[in-house]
Design a protein around this nucleic acid. Structure first.
Length: 320
DNA sequence: CACAGCCTGCAT
DNA sequence: ATGCAGGCTGTG
């Protein structure tokens, strides 16, 4: 389940193969992967073929690639350009096929201890052929992710929109997404204040991408465990100090995951070479129900919360 | 703010 | 056959 660290690993992997390269040809094998694209498969292909990608940017779990302008802006409809937007959803993968990378992929294959290598063509939904011969394959088992082309709009604060870009532009379709915890322009004190105005359970608040982006179920449970907070506590009943502690835990766990290539909890998350991340072995709470809490030794539990699993230590993380 | 629905693969 | 996994959108 890709969250911020996994998406950032993918962004870094894509950059050398997409930035300042022209998209020569686009193949769409699954129209449902373009659900969020306004004018259909043909429109998507037309919007991309022959256009150059400037860079690869990320905010939270959203990736986008601003396109060099082919379409001229008119005075009646001034345009800031558009971007190819990519979201991995639950099970999306972006894989680079290139002589260089294929070598790395095959060399790494024997280290993929868990299970056989997956069929590289399975669940192939979209393929971008880049000038220079590399291919970007979008694979997605569950089709929760996808691609679309969206106009770019100004960031409300006029600052760079996210990681990998200096432009104050982000896709209209992702304009409601808040800055993430690895964003240098995140205003943390105002985030703390904003969180404390909410009455919802703290876990719901940190999973709300419009409040702070990039956190998903895995890192939410890890950070709540680290900060010794119960998921169901109302955000407005928690001290500013504790909220700050939680955000530090969130940033820390995501930073550490990023450094080792992300978390591959099951076979669904891999980087652009098809390699898994190593952070699963560092998880303290997520998926550890029945095992001793690394802090107090009592058994961790898994409970249902808002139709999702939450993992916690009932002793360290009490409601009050 | 809460919840259904989107999806497929795998476990029960 | 049924349930579970869950990021995000759209509805109430």
């Amino acid at each position: 389940m890709p969250e911020l660290p996994e998406v950032e690993v993918v962004r870094r992997g894509l950059e050398p193969f997409m930035a300042r390269r022209v998209i020569e040809r686009v193949e769409v094998f699954e129209a449902r992967s373009l659900k969020r694209h306004a004018d259909g498969v043909e429109g998507f292909v037309r919007a991309l073929e022959g256009r150059e990608i400037r860079e690869v940017a990320r905010r939270g779990k959203f990736l986008w690639a601003p396109l060099s302008d082919a379409r001229r802006a008119t005075s009646s409809s001034p345009s800031l350009g558009e971007a190819l937007v990519m979201h991995l959803g639950m099970s999306g993968q972006l894989r680079v096929r290139d002589a260089e990378v294929r070598g790395a992929y095959q060399a790494s294959e024997p280290h993929l201890s868990e299970g056989p290598a997956s069929d590289p063509e399975k669940h192939l939904r979209i393929r971008l052929h880049m000038a220079g011969g590399s291919r970007i394959d979008f694979l997605d088992q569950r089709i929760f992710g996808g691609m679309h082309v969206s106009p770019l709009v100004n960031t409300p604060d006029g600052l760079a929109a996210g990681t990998g870009t200096n432009l104050p532009l982000l896709p209209e379709s992702a304009a409601h997404i808040a800055r993430d915890l690895l964003d240098p322009f995140l205003d943390e004190e105002s985030l703390v204040r904003q969180i404390r105005t909410r009455r919802a359970p703290i876990k719901s608040v940190i999973l709300d991408q419009g409040t702070v982006s990039g956190v998903g179920n895995i890192y939410a449970d890890e950070a709540l465990w680290e900060a010794k907070l119960h998921f169901a506590r109302s955000a407005n009943g928690i001290s500013s100090r504790k909220i700050r502690e939680l955000l530090v835990a969130c940033r820390g766990v995501m930073q550490r995951a990023l450094e080792v290539g992300g978390t591959s909890f099951d076979a669904l998350y891999v980087n652009v070479d098809g390699r898994r991340g190593y952070f699963a072995r560092s998880l303290s709470a997520y998926g550890k129900h029945g095992m001793p809490c690394p802090r107090c030794g009592r058994a961790l539990v898994r409970v249902q919360f808002q139709n999702r699993s939450s993992h916690l230590c009932p002793y360290c993380q009490r409601r009050r």
